[in-house]
């Protein structure tokens, strides 16, 4: 059985204790997008301000509202830090890399028993190869342990799905 330290890495707890980019942006001009985790009732709000003057557009500012568990809050905090100032193309790559890291065990649910787990771990390597080479997940790597706790994957991906929706709202 994976232990708590596999899930709650120190850097995760740090982001949970001191969330980055917590707050609101005036909307408009910023877009405000809500995300829900239907399993637990957590709600997250992503405020997004794009700089359209550059080509491609960049994330000028991002703020995170709402409330949730340590995993969803720290994931949102790390995400906000990771995407701020990045071009939308870079954000897209980052999202793809992060969700790649998270999706791996969703396929091998329910993940009972050691055999299954090993399968998952070897699969992880395979999927890593698909992640764009120049993408550095940095702090976000700390969330890798979440895949050992399948129920929590949705906590970790909530902010990313909300960001993707926000970008769609902002660019459509």
């Amino acid at each position: 059985m994976p232990g708590l330290e596999d899930l709650y890495r120190e850097i995760i707890l740090d982001h949970y204790r001191s969330p980055r980019n917590k707050g609101e942006l005036e909307s408009p001009p910023a877009t405000r997008t809500e995300g829900f985790n239907p399993l637990c009732g957590d709600e997250i709000v992503v405020y997004l301000e794009l700089d359209d003057s550059s080509e491609p557009p960049t994330v000028e500012d991002i703020k995170i509202g709402g409330q949730g568990c340590s995993i969803s809050q720290s994931s949102a905090s790390m995400m906000s830090a990771a995407v701020k100032g990045k071009t939308l193309a870079e954000v897209k790559d980052l999202t793809k890399a992060f969700k790649g890291m998270m999706s791996i065990h969703e396929q091998s649910l329910p993940g009972e028993g050691a055999g299954k787990e090993e399968e998952g771990d070897s699969g992880l390597g395979d999927l890593e190869a698909e992640i764009p080479e120049d993408v550095k997940l940095g702090d976000l790597e700390a969330l890798r342990g979440v895949v050992k706790f399948p129920v929590r994957i949705k906590c970790a991906t909530l902010s990313w799905n909300t960001l993707a929706q926000g970008i769609e709202d902002a660019t459509s």
């Binding site: 708590l4 899930l7 009732g41 568990c69 995993i71 929590r152």
Partner: peptide, 27 residues
């Protein structure tokens, strides 16, 4: 957070539900 609480419970084999319990208006 209840999710974090019950995650620790799981380490102790204590089975308790966390969430909105399918009663969001009440929550």
């Amino acid at each position: 957070h209840p999710h974090d609480l019950t995650q620790v419970f799981d380490q102790h084999n204590v089975c308790v539900r966390a969430g909105h319990h399918c009663a969001k208006p009440l929550m």
